[in-house]
Simulated assay, not measured.
Amino acid sequence: MTVTAHSPLTDVQPDTDVAKRAAALKRVPDDKAMLRAVAELTRDLGTPNPRIFWSDFLASAFLGYAGLAVAILSGNLWLQCVAALVSVLALYRAGGFIHEVSHVKHSALPGFRFGFNAVIGVPLLVPSYMYEGIHNLHHARTRYGTDQDPEYLPLALMKPWTLPLFIFASVLAPFALLFRNAVLAPLSLFIPALRQIVVERYSGLAINPAFRRRPAEGEAHRNWIIQETAASIWSIVLLGGVFSGYIALNAFLIFLAIVSSVAVLNQVRTLVAHLWENDGEPLSVTAQFLDSVNVPPPGILASIWAPVGLRYHALHHLLPSVPYHALGEAHRRLTAQLAPDSAYHCANYDGLTGLVARLARSTLVRGA
């Protein structure tokens, strides 16, 4: 962990005092100088660049599907493995744009939501309605880290077995999504009670099992229905093609394996997006920032496992409307301008391995 400043949390050892850190987190006041600098130094970075968005997204999707095609069609095992790896990493990056779709002003990127859903969202069974209207709740000032946050679990304060279960659940994601779209969604049109369950519990990319989604309204409801219908038709056609023999079972299984691998990679990334040390109480903005993670350069692996700006996840919690391609510049400005004792310098970490090990040790200590 790279810490060059002092905060109430740096006096508590992360591996042995998890409960103390959770208590200290609730006492962290807002670093007003940091928050003021964040607002002042990044005012010109809020506009998304359509060329960067479209070229990055389409290139990633093309590479991902090309790798999938080679993995399915090649008769060379080694080539299949390499192509599958390329496909997983590229589709993972392309899928990461669902995060940008949930934040960006759509008038600034006309057609991008449709493009995302047509190219990635529907084919990979994760249309953007499953994230839009969910992710913004994670950023709500009074919801972060509480039982009303769909994207938070106090993992550092839970039992050791929760971590492997957390990862294993993502392995089954494509199977669950196929069943949801091909079976539950059509049936729910005729069974109101089932529809309520589908909407509340199976229509959002959430990790908090206690979260219940509310039905969308207005334009959001219209987008939901269109995307859900498309995902249902695609799922039914896909399964129908397999059962009728038009789609080879081997090709279908390779597709599922790649989609499942994308889901696992994203779940591992989610595992280290936060420190997960809040025990359910509302936090100050600075405390939310300190419970989140930046993995800035010079390391380059984070650009692979935390693409599309996700390596600056803590900074993103301070600047949720800043597009992914501007977060690196925002980080450079803030790092250069903020004083050494600023809380901003306390959310920078070295890499994936250390963060996973820290979280695992926390659960082991907690479960002892």
Results as ranks from 00 to 15, higher is better:
Thr2Tyr: 14
Ser7Ala: 10
Val12Tyr: 13
Val12His: 15
Gln13Phe: 10
Pro14Gly: 06
Lys20Ile: 02
Arg27Lys: 09
Val28Thr: 07
Pro29Met: 04
Ala37Leu: 14
Ala39Phe: 12
Glu40Cys: 08
Leu45Tyr: 04
Gly46Tyr: 09
Arg51Phe: 11
Asp56Ile: 06
Phe57Ser: 11
Leu63Asp: 05
Gly67Ala: 07
Ala69His: 10
Ala71His: 08
Leu77Ser: 09
Leu79Phe: 07
Val88Ser: 08
Leu89Val: 04
Arg93Trp: 01
Ala94Asp: 06
Ala94Gly: 12
Gly95Gln: 09
Gly96Tyr: 06
Val101Pro: 11
Val104Ser: 13
Leu109Met: 14
Leu109Cys: 13
Pro127His: 08
Tyr129His: 15
Glu151Thr: 00
Met158Val: 06
Met158Gln: 09
Lys159Pro: 07
Pro160His: 09
Trp161Asp: 07
Thr162Val: 15
Ile167Cys: 09
Ala169Glu: 13
Val171Gln: 09
Leu178Trp: 02
Asn181Ala: 13
Leu189Glu: 13
Ile191Tyr: 13
Pro192Ser: 01
Ala193Pro: 02
Arg195Val: 05
Val198Asp: 00
Val198His: 01
Ala206Asn: 10
Ile207Asn: 13
Ile207Trp: 12
Asn208Cys: 09
Ala220Arg: 15
Ala220Trp: 12
Arg222Ile: 05
Asn223Tyr: 15
Ala230Phe: 06
Ala231Lys: 04
Ser232Trp: 02
Leu239Gly: 05
Ile247Tyr: 00
Ala248Phe: 03
Leu249Tyr: 07
Phe252Cys: 08
Leu256Asp: 08
Ala257Glu: 07
Val259Gln: 13
Ser261Phe: 00
Ala263Cys: 14
Leu265Ser: 03
Arg269Ala: 12
Trp276Ala: 04
Asn278His: 03
Ala287Val: 07
Phe289Lys: 09
Leu290Tyr: 03
Val293Asp: 02
Asn294Tyr: 01
Pro296Gly: 07
Pro298Arg: 08
Ile300Gly: 07
Leu301Met: 12
Leu301Ile: 10
Ser303Lys: 10
Trp305Thr: 13
Pro307Ser: 14
Gly309Tyr: 04
Tyr312Cys: 02
His316Pro: 06
Val322Phe: 08
Tyr324Val: 12
His325Asn: 09
Ala330Ile: 00
Ala339Lys: 15
Ala339His: 14
Pro340Asp: 02
Ala343Leu: 10
Ala343Gly: 14
Asp350Ile: 06
Asp350Asn: 12
Val356Asn: 01
Ala357Cys: 13
Arg358Val: 06
Ala360Glu: 04
Ser362Gly: 06
Arg366Gly: 00
